[in-house]
Simulated scan of single mutants.
Amino acid sequence: MHATAALRNAARTPLIRFLGKRSTPKSVDHTPRVHPASPTGALPDSFATYRAKAQQHGPLGRASFTSGGIGSLSGAALGPVRPAAGEFFDRTELPARFGRLSWTEAEIEAIESGGASMFA
């Protein structure tokens, strides 16, 4: 007999045992409340006013897209992108002292052997 077939046919009993019947509370308060860590300490008037002021990787309002804001110009029209002084986009642009070190033959052998060649 196959073990998987026997397991599939067996009745499943949960390992957790709950005490008593399920019951929901009689009264649950669902009124919105301000989060304790809220910087303003007040709820927004409506979702529309919240969304107009919200920022998530840029403004969320529709007006910013249509009035010459984000997305209204192509990337080429924005001009070249250059890093500021002291900033680099790629590791290869850093000075030589920050470059990658070359591997020695001993290190290559240690990696290929799983470290066993270091103790042999």
Score class of each variant (00 low, 15 high):
residue 72 S to G: 06
residue 30 H to Q: 04
residue 61 G to L: 01
residue 27 S to N: 10
residue 33 R to A: 12
residue 22 R to F: 14
residue 10 A to M: 11
residue 50 Y to S: 10
residue 56 Q to F: 13
residue 20 G to W: 04
residue 89 F to P: 00
residue 18 F to N: 05
residue 85 A to L: 04
residue 50 Y to V: 04
residue 51 R to D: 07
residue 48 A to L: 10
residue 9 N to K: 15
residue 73 L to W: 02
residue 25 P to N: 07
residue 12 R to F: 14
residue 10 A to G: 06
residue 34 V to M: 11
residue 29 D to I: 04
residue 80 P to A: 15
residue 114 G to N: 02
residue 70 I to G: 00
residue 120 A to T: 12
residue 73 L to Y: 07
residue 83 P to A: 08
residue 103 W to F: 13
residue 113 S to Y: 00
residue 74 S to V: 06
residue 30 H to V: 06
residue 9 N to E: 15
residue 97 R to F: 06
residue 55 Q to L: 15
residue 75 G to M: 12
residue 102 S to V: 10
residue 80 P to Q: 11
residue 12 R to Q: 08
residue 67 S to A: 10
residue 22 R to C: 08
residue 108 I to E: 12
residue 52 A to Q: 09
residue 71 G to D: 06
residue 60 L to E: 08
residue 99 G to N: 05
residue 61 G to F: 01
residue 78 L to C: 10
residue 110 A to V: 00
residue 56 Q to E: 10
residue 80 P to T: 14
residue 105 E to S: 13
residue 54 A to F: 07
residue 22 R to P: 03
residue 15 L to R: 05
residue 75 G to E: 13
residue 75 G to H: 09
residue 40 T to I: 10
residue 120 A to E: 14
residue 93 E to D: 15
residue 45 D to E: 15
residue 96 A to C: 00
residue 102 S to Q: 13
residue 107 E to R: 11
residue 79 G to M: 02
residue 120 A to W: 05
residue 2 H to N: 14
residue 40 T to C: 04
residue 79 G to C: 03
residue 1 M to A: 13
residue 114 G to T: 04
residue 26 K to Q: 15
residue 103 W to Y: 12
residue 90 D to L: 14
residue 105 E to G: 12
